[in-house]
Nucleic acid binder design. Structure first.
Lengths: 251, 251
DNA sequence: CGCAAATTTGAAATCGTTCAAATCGGGTGG
DNA sequence: CCACCCGATTTGAACGATTTCAAATTTGCG
């Protein structure tokens, strides 16, 4: 069910009423599997449904003068393209990193849901705003941090987001990125990403064995990354209904 | 009236019904003037009203390890902090560049407006999504373009947005930024911004005499900047009611 | 086992930074 | 009206982070 981790995540950021949870669990959806690198949506596409990440890893990408730039990342529970509800024309690509399972919910259903529930409108709108807050942090990341902090910051962010949906175990989480992917995400060359990761390893801040990353000495890592999670706008509180409690680690 | 340029802008991106326009023109608001550098909102603040830029220039800023990073820019007709409706806690600063006139509309009023008009909800939500699309482009700008393209791109974007609200005359628009500001926005050093602007001037692409910028050879400039305006999601069509048609140039 | 992709290494080249100082420009007080 | 001052722009030169190029090594997969 695509709603499981979605609910877990919405709980973490807004808190949901019983009826909202019920409405979400009764969402109609179709499921599709994607392979590494496959496109969920391409620049120029017009979407008529929204993707919910059930498992795996998605990323947004824009190509500029031949060079790819990864714009953001999505894990289970995220809805990477809710924005297509109001901005159907895609101005970038949405792709899978590693294999992923995606649920698709028709725009028409979501629109109905939103007009009938102001609180869900609030919750979903809020999600799109958190997405924007994350972009802002990435602008700062690319504009103001050096390579080491930049890569470290990416790890910290993914870990913080994955924790919310129970995808971190023992400080370890799934990240199906090659160093080339990381390079595209961080605006660096592969070679330099390689050296940067070595440096993080050397300092005892991370362990990396694809596809897993393990964060060691979290505080020191966050200090190096200048990471503070406030921009993720997590609440830490619990809502009124249960989301999934799964702790699946793979994908 | 804060609604004038706002309507003009909303027209350009969605098209508004007569009644929506009427609702907007009857917005209650207070006006305040800000001086150069003054803070409209600070990180940590909780907003209870939304700013509408009536004239002048605002920017978002985040400070990271001592270094400021400008995240985005706002001109007349923009509502830089609608997001506070659903995410009241500011995770960054909002400041004035040069003097500006800002209208403030209470959250409570806007919430009423939005629950009563699905089309306005759509329009305003869409605005926040375009804001996000602009951040995405900035991520790409900082991550994938060199200094010359980066600065050129900033000029192109501001021009495109200013055109929508009639703030460009004769390819010339108001930009009350010092080279230091531009440096913070583009993730570059002042010295290099200086040299980059000289290069743009030398190539006959811009003229700059603070606080005005004039774009020459627009196509060539956009080629250098690798600028395509699609991410701004302008429609080019006209809606059902008139916004202001002013062509005020100063501020 | 063997190929292709991913990681790693080295060395040279580059773009952008830093530091430091000179010049320009606009506004203020005398 | 002029002198002065401060912030902004400009210049030069050395330095440094990151890129590029090229090749070697490792890893994962069929």
């Amino acid at each position: 069910m695509p709603s499981q981790k979605l609910i877990q995540r919405l709980q973490a950021v807004v808190g949901l009423s019983e009826s909202d949870c019920y409405a979400l669990t009764s969402m109609p959806y179709t499921v599709r599997e994607f392979r590494d690198g496959e496109y969920i949506l391409r620049e120029g596409d017009r979407a008529s449904q929204c993707a919910v990440v059930m498992s795996g890893f998605l990323f947004r990408e824009k190509t500029i003068g031949g060079r790819a730039q990864i714009l953001s990342l999505y894990i289970a529970g995220d809805m990477p393209d809710v924005h297509t509800l109001h901005l159907p024309l895609m101005d970038h690509d949405l792709r899978s990193a590693g294999p992923s399972t995606i649920g698709f919910v028709p725009h028409s259903f979501l629109r109905g849901l939103l007009t009938s529930s102001p609180s869900l409108t609030h919750a979903i709108w809020r999600e799109t705003l958190i997405d924007a807050a994350i972009y802002r942090e990435w602008v700062a990341n690319l504009g103001a941090r050096d390579a080491l902090a930049r890569v470290a910051h990416m790890f910290c962010e993914i870990a913080a987001r994955a924790e919310v949906v129970g995808l971190v175990k023992n400080s370890e989480f799934y990240l199906p990125f090659t160093q080339q992917n990381i390079a595209y995400a961080c605006g660096l060359s592969v070679v330099h990403v390689n050296r940067t990761i070595q440096e993080l390893r050397r300092r005892g801040l991370i362990e990396r064995e694809r596809p897993m990353v393990k964060l060691l000495r979290r505080e020191e890592l966050e200090r190096v990354a200048e990471f503070t999670p406030d921009y993720l706008h997590l609440r830490g509180e619990k809502g009124h209904c249960k989301g999934g409690t799964g702790t699946q680690l793979q994908r």
